[in-house]
Design a protein around this nucleic acid. Structure first.
Lengths: 247, 247
DNA sequence: CGGTTCGTTGAGACCGTTCAACCCCGGTGG
DNA sequence: CCACCGGGGTTGAACGGTCTCAACGAACCG
C-alpha cells in the first residue's frame, strides 16, 4: 500500500491525473520504509514533533494516557493513512502513537511536507482534505461518545472500519481482519473490555456482526448502516469547488 | 471585539507586528457586521458552505441533531472566534451553528479567506493555527466524554471557558457570565440537564464553583485546574519553529 | 505441559437517566 | 397591584446501563 495508491483510491487524485512531479513528490515520502513491531510506540505524548509517517502495512492508533490510569484511543490508522498530521503546526505531540500489529511505516520530515506543499498546490489541497476528513471522523466519534449507547457505538465503529477498509481493498465477502483487542476497542469507545465483550455478543445475537478471533464479518452491512444512521459524507466527502479553484 | 484584537491577544501576532496590509486584510473580514438574536440559527447541518463568520459579540455553538432526538454540542464560540472553519474545504456543513444569546457577527466569504491566505503567509499560518487549536479542543472534549465522570467533565468545561474568556478580557475577580442553559451544558457534555444541575450542586458544595443565574465564579481556579489536570498547551500552544520558517 | 493473554459469564454496586413534582423568577395582561 | 403563565432550575424516587470484581474457559507459546 503506497500513499500514491491510497490517495488515488480516495479519489483525491481524480481531478486531473497527477503530474509526474507530483507522483515523485508523493513517492519521495516513502523512501525510508521500516518494519515496526506490534505494540511499538512511534512517539509519546509531549515529544518533540519531528516526523510524520505513512502507514504502508499494519494498523496503528493515537492515544492519550489519562491521570486516572485509563487510556483514550483517538484514532485508528489503516494502511495508506498519514500519522501525525494532528500535530502539524505544533511543537509538541498532543497524543502518542503506537502500532497495533506488525507493520511497515515510512517516516518523513516536516521539511519534506513543506516542500511538497510549496511545490504542488493540488497535493497541498489533498493533504488538507485528509486532515479535514480526520477532524470530521473525530467529531463523529465525539457525537457517539456523548449521546449513544454501547451497541450503537460499537456498530458505528465497526461500520466505519468496514467502509475505510473497503476503499483500500481490504474487505472480502463483507469480512475483514480486525487486529484490535477488546480492551483496545473499549479504549476507543469509552467502554470497559468486559462490556465490549457483552456488546459483541448482543450484536451477534441480532445477526449484525459475526466475529471469530480477529476476523469480523458484517452479514448485512446495510442493516448496520441503518442502525447507526451512518453519515458517510465525511468519508466520501466532496471538496468545495472554490477549494479546487485555489491552485 | 475585533478579530485583530483577538488574534493579537491570542499571541499569534507576536512574531513581528503585523504589516499595515495584513491589518487591513483582517479588518476587511469584519466589514459587514450584523445583529443576531438569541437562538438564531446561522446555518443548518448539510447546508451549502458559503460563509464563515467572526463573532464580535455574544456566544454561539455548533451542534449536531441526532436521530434519537438528542443534540450534541460540538463547540462553543466566544467573541473573537471564527465560526465555520470546521467546514473549510467541504461543500456541505458538517454541523449547524446557532447563537446562544444576542450578539453581533461579521460574515465573510470563502473568496475573502482565499485572498487573505494568498496575500499573507503569516496570516495563513495564524488561521491554520486556530483550526489546529480547535481540533485540539475537540480532542480534549472527546477524551473527557470517553473517560471521565460528570463532575470532571463539568469542571473541565468551566475551566476551559474560564481560560478562553480570560484571554479576551471577559473575566473579573475569577467570575464570568455564562449564558448557556443547563440543558445546553448537558448537550455539550453528554449529560442530562437534571444531572448537570446535581453536578453544579456538588461542585458548589466542594467550594469549587459558585453560580448564581448566569454568573459563574471560580473561587480557586488553581484547585479546579488540579482537579481536571488541565493541559493548557492546546490553548497557549507553541507553533512549530519550522512552521514560522514557512513564510 | 504450564504460563500467559484474551475473551466470556455472573453478581453486585454505582452512576446517570427518566419521570415527576415543585419552586423560583420574570414577563404579561387584567 | 395581583393573577397567571412559562421557562429554567432543583429535588426525590425508581429504573437501567455500564463498571468492577471475580472465576472460568479457550487459544497460543514457550
Amino acid at each position: 500500500m503506497t500513499l500514491l495508491d491510497s490517495i488515488v483510491m480516495q479519489g483525491l487524485g481524480r481531478h486531473g491525473a497527477l503530474t509526474a512531479e507530483e507522483k515523485t513528490l508523493l513517492l519521495d515520502l516513502e523512501l525510508n520504509p521500516r518494519r515496526a513491531a506490534a505494540g511499538e510506540v512511534l512517539w509519546q505524548e509531549s515529544a518533540d514533533v519531528d516526523l510524520f509517517c505513512v502507514v504502508k502495512e499494519g494498523w496503528a492508533y493515537s492515544y492519550r494516557n489519562l491521570g486516572n490510569g485509563s487510556m483514550q484511543i483517538l484514532k485508528v490508522y489503516l494502511p495508506g493513512d498519514i500519522i501525525g498530521m494532528r500535530d502539524f503546526g505544533f511543537a509538541r505531540r498532543l497524543a502518542g502513537v503506537a502500532m497495533i500489529n506488525d507493520g511497515v511505516i515510512s517516516p518523513f520530515t516536516h521539511q519534506q511536507l513543506f516542500e511538497l506543499i510549496g511545490r504542488s498546490p493540488a497535493l497541498a489541497a489533498s493533504i488538507i482534505a485528509t486532515v479535514v476528513r480526520q477532524q470530521a471522523m473525530l467529531t463523529e466519534r465525539l457525537v457517539y461518545l456523548g449521546r449513544y449507547a454501547a451497541h450503537e457505538r460499537l456498530a458505528h465503529f465497526l461500520y466505519e472500519l468496514y467502509l475505510r477498509l473497503k476503499r483500500i481493498g481490504a474487505v472480502t465477502d463483507n469480512g475483514f481482519v480486525m487486529p484490535l483487542s477488546q480492551e483496545q476497542v473499549g479504549d476507543a469507545l469509552g467502554l470497559s473490555a468486559v462490556h465490549v465483550s457483552r456488546t459483541f455478543s448482543m450484536l451477534r445475537d441480532e445477526g449484525l456482526v459475526v466475529r471469530d478471533r480477529q476476523h469480523v464479518v458484517l452479514p448485512d452491512p446495510q442493516a448496520l448502516a441503518r442502525l447507526v444512521e451512518f453519515n458517510d459524507t465525511y468519508i466520501d466527502e466532496t471538496l468545495s469547488p472554490a477549494f479546487h479553484g485555489f491552485h
